[in-house]
Design a protein around this nucleic acid. Structure first.
Lengths: 163, 163
DNA sequence: TCAATTCCGACAAAATGCGTCAGAAATCCC
DNA sequence: GGGATTTCTGACGCATTTTGTCGGAATTGA
């Protein structure tokens, strides 16, 4: 069922800097699958979990963030399920990932909004992490949900220029 | 000694997506400090740990990666210590961070070099993570060690003058 | 009423991060 | 040679986070 994380990359001390967790992987795949399967009636979680082979109970828990962020609408009860709250072409993937993981903060240094590092004066290092943060957000926002939902065919960027 | 990670950002389920670990924070600060303190003779770990207020024993362990990557030279014994192996202006921060953390892999999906996701056909999602990976590497490589080592003076480059 | 479905909180196992510690090996100075 | 200094290495421990599972409550349609 889960043959991910097979130990095939013992590089240095572990596995390398894995930026995002399974939470994002599952949540993004959920959104893409929902986009593809949404034809008017709500799509049930079980259908999506089966389709994408994701752990249903865990997914249930993950999705809360997407609902709270207003990215999906839910309907309870028989024949209930989920729908996209907005057209897929108007949903940036940055919104999705941030709804799942919280704000992108490459280094704890940047977490406290006001003072970077409490070492403000000579801490030029925070500029490095700031730029990484901005880059990640830009990269994520350069995709829309619609970009990922159309199968095959390398994604033709809808908004971003290139890289 | 450690007043980092004060719980000041209870956004969603935890702390947000913290991309890099203390390992990188400490390692990068070590490199910057070394650059500033390197005046010919090797600089001892204790001097740098004191200067930057880093846990010495942990730093010792972290630095191994930098040495193995050929970024610093070490000399053992009395009056030993570390030196930069190359001029600071020729060291990209991407090299430093990758030496510390291993390869930048935003999602486990991309770890196994050959097949993305073992779901190759309809997995357009991997394109998202690929672009994030490339963006992070580019952002890191856009700084040299020399950029960060010169104090004060915001680094001359584009688009980082917010808030 | 019954079945389907989302919603919610508690729980648990495993992985990871962060750091300490003790000691071995190398090097310099007297 | 001997002692002081310093890097190097592996083992260990603790706390937190991640990755789920489970049971049941609330809601809705038939």
């Amino acid at each position: 069922m889960n043959e991910l994380q097979d130990p095939a990359q013992r590089d240095l001390h572990g596995s390398g800097a894995v930026t995002f967790s399974m939470r994002s992987e599952y949540g993004v795949r959920f959104m893409v699958a929902l986009t593809r399967m949404d034809h008017g009636e709500p799509v049930s979680l079980t259908d999506i979990a089966d389709q994408e082979d994701l752990p249903r109970a865990y997914l249930e828990q993950i999705i809360g963030g997407l609902r709270d962020a207003g990215l999906i609408d839910s309907q309870r009860g028989a024949h209930g399920g989920y729908r996209l709250a907005r057209p897929a072409s108007e949903v940036r993937m940055g919104e999705v990932v941030r709804a799942l993981e919280g704000p992108i903060v490459p280094m704890a240094c940047l977490a406290a909004a006001g003072s970077p590092c409490n070492r403000a004066d000579n801490c030029t290092v925070s500029q490095l992490w700031s730029r990484v943060r901005d880059s990640v957000n830009e990269a994520l926002d350069s995709f829309t949900l619609a970009d990922l939902a159309k199968p095959g065919s390398p994604v033709a960027l809808s908004s971003s220029t290139k890289h």
